[in-house]
Simulated assay, not measured.
Amino acid sequence: MTVWDRPEPPTRPVLLDRERIVAAAIALADEGGLEAVSVRKVAARLDAGPMRLYRYISTKEELFDLMVDEVQAEILPEGQPVDWREALRVLAQRTRQAALRHEWLADLLGGRPTLGPNGLAVAEATLAAFDARTDVDTVMRAVETVSAYFIGAIRREIANLRAERTTGLSKHDWQRAHGPHVSTMLATGRFPALAKAVHDGTDVDAETSFETGLDWVLDAVATRLTRPPM
């Protein structure tokens, strides 16, 4: 039985429910990451005994599932996308936006899907945008392909943001600090392709990089979806 299937116990003597527990856990994670979340810390924030929380959740993993599903409500599109391309673009963009608000989400993306009501609603809105005549296996591979792209891109972006906070160096500060070493290595002539990328490549911001990569992946998926059946 999943956490969503189990009935909640009575709230007395301290007003408590899964909604308040999840809200407290998300607040802790927003402040200090997933490592800041524990049943004891959530209970302390709610002024309740830790054992009481175990009447609502069985494990920390269940708590994480509930947290992810709560954030899925932020990812759910405001209206039904008009086609599959818009659906996948909205899914990618809104997931990125949610992860920038809740950086811990990046650590939980890509695993087994959560089965909460919001997560199921996001999946339904995405899949429903595909032409009903499209083979379901093709649809699933399309969703998996785009998801693999944006999950990886989001994790990289969040990792860079964390590195900036940890080191105190912005991207450009880091590049300047390591510039002499890179220049020395490129001057050896051993890395001509890398040298061309460094000297001739255009530096773009994270959002531009994300949107460009997303367009390329969607174009590739479109080619597969429009290919005539064998």
Rank of each mutant, 00 (worst) to 15 (best):
R6M: 04
P7G: 07
P9D: 05
T11S: 15
V14E: 13
L15I: 02
E19D: 10
R20Y: 05
L28G: 08
A29F: 13
E31D: 15
E31M: 05
E31W: 08
L34V: 13
A36G: 03
V37Q: 10
V39K: 02
R40W: 09
A48G: 07
P50H: 12
M51F: 06
M51L: 01
L53E: 05
Y54T: 05
I57P: 06
E62N: 07
L66N: 04
L66P: 05
M67S: 03
Q72W: 14
E74S: 08
Q80K: 11
V82S: 13
V82R: 15
A87L: 01
A87K: 04
L88Q: 13
V90T: 14
T95E: 09
T95L: 05
R96W: 12
A98D: 07
A99I: 06
L100V: 04
R101T: 04
R101N: 12
E103W: 15
W104G: 01
P113G: 09
P113T: 04
T114I: 12
G116E: 13
T126I: 07
A128E: 08
F130R: 11
D131A: 09
R141G: 00
A142E: 09
A142I: 09
V143T: 06
E144W: 09
T145C: 01
T145K: 03
A148V: 00
R155V: 00
R156D: 05
E157H: 11
A159H: 12
R162G: 00
R165N: 00
T166P: 00
S170L: 00
S170F: 02
K171Y: 09
K171F: 12
D173A: 09
W174P: 00
W174N: 03
R176P: 01
S183Q: 14
T184V: 02
M185D: 01
G189R: 13
R190D: 14
T202Q: 12
A206H: 11
E207V: 11
T208P: 08
F210H: 07
E211I: 01
L214F: 10
D215R: 15
W216L: 10
D219E: 14
D219T: 13
